[in-house]
Design a protein around this nucleic acid. Structure first.
Lengths: 144, 144
DNA sequence: GGCGCAAATGCTACTATGTTGCAAAACCAC
DNA sequence: GTGGTTTTGCAACATAGTAGCATTTGCGCC
């Protein structure tokens, strides 16, 4: 297979960050790109396994860390103690998240950063704001 | 010591929630009330130890959980995987938090919930919003 | 194509945070 | 004080994440 089957934007994203193209890295990034929600380390590991991609827990942690450091992905702490990962939006991670309190799903809401023109008590230097909305997602909301 | 040395609002808060007055519970609540920032389970445990109050790791977890359930305290996940606790403001936990990216300190910003009148993509039912501001706190900001 | 080197992986073992079950102790009403 | 329920303390377990190191792999270079 000398001709690359699909032109995968994942690979170009990786090389753009000065990283090497590896099975795990490409697969993880493609999973994140395809996902419409933030995934836990565990969920990504499961997806990898389903694709028959052999991997190690530690490797996955390091791969995800690398993606975050490179600015390709972003990391966020949820209510449970598991971190969730998603591909970063165009700009810096300046977007809101919606956390469904019923199914625990977390989706990224792009282009939704509101006016966080709050009056900080002085002395505080604002760098970035993180907004997490809690409630029910469309799927869970219907059931009620 | 039949006369209570200090009239502790902690005790009244506890009884108001239908809980029993115990060493640990009162001490933990007083620590939280006195703190100007959110504390981790570990920090609280350390403070208890300094006061010579014997306690168990598990007891502390349960005490904190009880406080959160009773609405007296609130729980929040930080960047590290440790949960932080603080006394809840007057209303429900409708207030913002400031996370100092240098010292890791988390303070509650009361009366600061901004207009989160974001336009949700439809289907989403908003319950509450959690706003976390990142940057440098007054102490760390000066150093730079 | 083969060579060498640095980056990335995989393994084992370890730390940290949080949870569960149960018996003993403490709290509070009487 | 006594009784009954809540709370504690202990031990063992569960889950999330980290560290060190030998091996493998991607990739530039010849």
């Amino acid at each position: 297979m000398s001709t690359h089957t699909h032109p995968s934007s994942a690979e170009s994203l990786i090389t753009a960050q000065g990283g090497r193209i590896t099975r795990t890295r490409v697969a993880v990034l493609e999973i994140l790109l395809a996902a419409d929600q933030s995934l836990t380390h565990d969920e990504i590991g499961l997806a990898l396994a389903e694709q028959g991609i052999k991997h190690d827990r530690v490797t996955l942690y390091r791969t995800l860390d690398w993606l975050v450091e490179s600015g390709v992905a972003h990391k966020m702490a949820g209510d449970d103690r598991a971190r969730r990962f998603g591909v970063a939006a165009s700009g810096p991670h300046e977007h809101a998240h919606f956390h469904c309190d019923r199914c625990g799903k977390v989706v990224c809401l792009e282009g939704l950063q509101p006016a966080v023109a709050v009056n900080l008590p002085g002395g505080y230097q604002l760098d970035r704001a993180e907004l997490v909305l809690h409630g029910a997602c469309p799927t869970c909301g219907k059931g009620a």
